[in-house]
């Protein structure tokens, strides 16, 4: 058995994951990155995206949005605004959110409101990634 690293995913609503895992793949600021055991101290911001980790042969997928992660002392901690397991995602709700965001996007670009545009884009992206994550069970 290879060495493991402690993974912790913390959201404002409490800890979501707290486990010893083999490898973590996360959506970093400059692209996805993987972290194995005994990684050097590391700090990165996290984009909205899919975080996955492997225990043995099982891979688990999480949808995470906005935050950062810290690696130190063979422990990787994610502080994110939200984290949902793929199988916990309410596909219908995500679909509705996607449609809503698309509608708002169309409205905002018609009226040229840059702030609303950015917000709508962000929520559309969240919805899309949530749908994507829902496909990995």
């Amino acid at each position: 058995m290879a060495q493991q690293i402690a993974l912790e995913v913390v959201t404002p609503a409490g800890a979501v994951v707290s486990e010893e895992v083999d490898i973590v793949n996360a959506p970093g600021y400059g692209g996805d990155f993987g972290v194995l055991a005994n990684h050097a101290p590391f700090l990165s911001t996290i984009k909205t995206g899919i975080l996955s980790y492997e225990i043995g042969k099982n891979r688990h997928y999480l949808m995470v949005s906005g935050g950062f992660c810290e690696v130190s002392n063979n422990k990787i901690t994610f502080l994110v605004e939200s984290a949902d397991f793929g199988h916990q995602i309410d596909v219908e709700r995500a679909m509705r959110a996607k449609e809503r965001a698309e509608k708002r996007l169309a409205q905002a670009s018609a009226q040229d409101e840059s702030i609303n545009l950015a917000r709508a884009e962000a929520s559309l992206q969240r919805a899309l990634i949530r749908l994507k994550a829902a496909n990995f069970k």
Binding site: G28, Y29, G30, F33, A40, P41, F42, L43, S44, T45, S72
Partner: peptide, 8 residues
């Protein structure tokens, strides 16, 4: 111990 790697 040691410096963090920051990204960005």
């Amino acid at each position: 111990s040691g410096e963090y790697i920051y990204e960005p």
